[in-house]
Design a protein around this nucleic acid. Sequence first.
DNA 1: GTCTATAGATAGATAGAC
DNA 2: GTCTATCTATCTATAGAC
Lengths: 197, 197
Amino acid sequence: MATQLEPAVPREGTGRKKLLAAALDLFAERGVSGTSLQMIADALGVTKAAVYYHYKTKDDIVLAVVNPAIEELAVIASEAERKRSRAAQVETVLVGIIDLIVRNRSLYAVLQGDLAVAHVLSEHGAFPELSNRIMALLVGPDPDPGTIVAASILLSGLGEAGFGPRVADIGDEELRGHMLGCARRLLRHRRPSAATP
Amino acid sequence: MATQLEPAVPREGTGRKKLLAAALDLFAERGVSGTSLQMIADALGVTKAAVYYHYKTKDDIVLAVVNPAIEELAVIASEAERKRSRAAQVETVLVGIIDLIVRNRSLYAVLQGDLAVAHVLSEHGAFPELSNRIMALLVGPDPDPGTIVAASILLSGLGEAGFGPRVADIGDEELRGHMLGCARRLLRHRRPSAATP
DNA sequence: GTCTATAGATAGATAGAC
DNA sequence: GTCTATCTATCTATAGAC
């Protein structure tokens, strides 16, 4: 099930949990490259060495912060790929991703907006492939350039907009609805020649 | 006039021009915080000290890279604010920004996607105010949350999508058209109660 | 599990020769 | 204008005491 009630990265907890929450806040505010282990340690009120006890490298912290979102995305993609109709595939991806974004607004922005994260993921994980799967689900087979542009704008825009200050005071329920509306307006324009079976 | 034939940051030139072009490439690929002055110097085949001859600080380089785009944005905003009808204001902003993005795809992504750039601009410039002006032109007075969400998605999405690898092989003319289509689809949904005079 | 201490590398930045 | 040389601060990361 893709829809959960808790955010992917808990705001409170002990040890690693608090560390990841603090790191996420800093990553979202200053960027991964702009965040030092010293800042993370200071935010927790501990020393750098204490941080290194939990994670061996900075990359490990980045991966640990971002991993819950990636796993949820993988679940969403698999769920969507099991649907038979194109419309159901698109709908499953949209509802799943928007729910993920709204539930944890800064995490998705860090995941897809930070170049340092992209760099780490391209080395340590299979995220590019997952990203391609999701894009393929959105645009379908043999997409025209217009659909590719629309889907690119949508995926980037949703992630960044969810974290932006202008939507900060919009409630989860309402934001979800508006984002879904935007997504459908963007993707549903003219149907190509082939009909959906 | 907002539409120019040359990109805002020239690809070739001498001295400062080449420096800014190299810096932009690195900023777009690794992020500002992930780019050291040594990398910029190496890209030019010179030493760090040679870079410091042209610009006193790293922030100065960031500002110099991003400044042409900001100036163009200011021209677009002023041009749009002179229009009398809301529709003309929106159209002027959309055409101007999309032209700017397409003409120099990585520059706008760095300008609005990099947290380090945002940090520098909030200290050294009046970019937040300009950003608010453009947003206000897009959403109009007393915007409903749905319009704010749509405009946020649009502005973030256009910038990031213009630089993305998926649209890299789409020509300028065609990309411009698709982006304009997406923008109009996103912003033009239901009209509020007030009619446009 | 958290600390001190420190290594080793690299960051941004400066002085002054050429 | 571009260089060598160097400074200081900070970075990631490790070793080992408590």
